[in-house]
Design a protein around this nucleic acid. Structure first.
Lengths: 231, 231
DNA sequence: TTTAAAAGCTGACATATATCATAGTTTCAG
DNA sequence: CTGAAACTATGATATATGTCAGCTTTTAAA
């Protein structure tokens, strides 16, 4: 599969609308995109920046985070292959509210906002699909709000590991494919790094998590799930 | 202003698209809507319910909340005159993820989902406007997530009062127009009712809030803002 | 008007979590 | 290979917040 068609797939998968975009429109997106390689730890865009387009993740994982007043980063979302970053800012014509930083080496393709806005205006089915996805995202955001305010740090960390397994899978030995630093996990669940480390150690002692080198794996999914659910 | 045109205004204001909806479409919405009166404390729809349409708030305020595993309600949003409830569920074709309960006596109008979906499919400008609003909402949801996980309860309560003043205003004596119970405030900021009561008392002692009867008012906005910002 | 229920308040106490300090361990650039 | 920097780990302690219990005041229904 060449890079052109792979990039189209990003858009198509994200917007779930192969049928909704005409050949011409796809062609236009392909013609205008630019591919970039991003090294682990490097930034793709920063909070407050005016985005000139959206970024489609072709390979690797990016963390989308926001700096809070107390100087801590809160990771709001992890974006992986096939996902698009920056579309909210482009659609709402607002500056980016999140920063995007590469969790590991990445490849992203850039799609100028004109191409997106153009298609949105010309192709109602496409727009409707984007709307449906955004409605779904909004629902998920509500769930996150409830979890953040009602669950304990332990429960949220348990959930984070279940999420990592569900969304990124595990290798043949049962270790999570995506390895995040303790600090990143802490920033996902909104806690102090030390607390995160302590709880992970506790989970290992209790046989819910296992580790091998710097890899972490889920050893007892049911126990972890029960804890996350508050039992 | 008769009730028909007022209801149209709800939709128009919410979707910010007077020009985007044709006369015929507006007519169709008017023809299909049903008006309902809701008493304080009564429910408009429940979490998990399949909504047959959206509700447009014509008068009063509704709290949109979700029951968490530990049995506490988390209020995710307050919907007031001109706002529409249930559109996410209708657009994403998912069951409602939030319950809507009247904070005070309300009047709402019901718009069947066919009318909405119909217009969404036929009128791309309308769809694009809805999309823009939803993109904006999603950004706000991200901000709430960051606040919930990074700010203290005191900061969040301070913010809640500033929000109430900003969005619902105050009477001539400087008391908030919208009076919420301590429990409701606690459920907005995600804390225990007792903690909320204690902190409100503290704010009164420190001259940041004032009270008269069951009304609360902001006595020192700057102090409250500084606290919310972490100074 | 009476009275039960809901809301508001306060104290005592338990506990989760943050913070600070220190040290071992891994990673990686030079 | 080596040293500095980043990451992981753990203890001691402080603090914010939740929980439980009892009480008063307000609200609203009979």
């Amino acid at each position: 599969m060449d890079s052109e068609s792979r990039c189209e797939n990003c858009i198509i998968r994200q917007f779930n609308s192969l049928r909704a975009m005409s050949k011409d429109e796809l062609k236009q997106v392909s013609d205008t995109k630019i591919t970039r390689k991003i090294k682990k730890g490097d930034s793709i865009f920063e909070e407050g920046e005016k985005l000139k387009g959206v970024y489609c993740v072709r390979d690797g994982v990016s963390k989308l985070s926001k700096l809070s007043a107390n100087g801590k980063d809160q990771i709001v979302k992890l974006a992986t292959k096939g996902e698009v970053m920056g579309q909210r800012s482009v659609i709402a014509e607002e500056s980016a509210n999140l920063s995007a930083v590469a969790v590991n080496d990445m490849e992203v393709c850039f799609i100028p906002k004109e191409a997106i806005v153009n298609t949105l205006h010309k192709n109602p089915d496409f727009t409707f699909e984007v709307l449906r996805l955004m409605a779904h995202d909004l629902r998920e955001a509500d769930d996150v709000i409830v979890n953040m305010s009602q669950k304990t740090v332990k429960q949220r960390i348990a959930e984070a590991f279940l999420y990592l397994k569900k969304n990124y899978g595990e290798d043949k030995n049962g270790y999570l494919s995506l390895t995040l630093s303790r600090e990143d996990i802490a920033n996902v669940v909104g806690t102090a790094t030390e607390s995160c480390i302590r709880i992970i150690s506790e989970f290992k002692k209790k046989g819910m998590l296992k580790s091998s080198g710097k890899k972490l794996g889920i050893a007892d999914e049911k126990k972890l799930q029960d804890l996350a659910d508050g039992f």
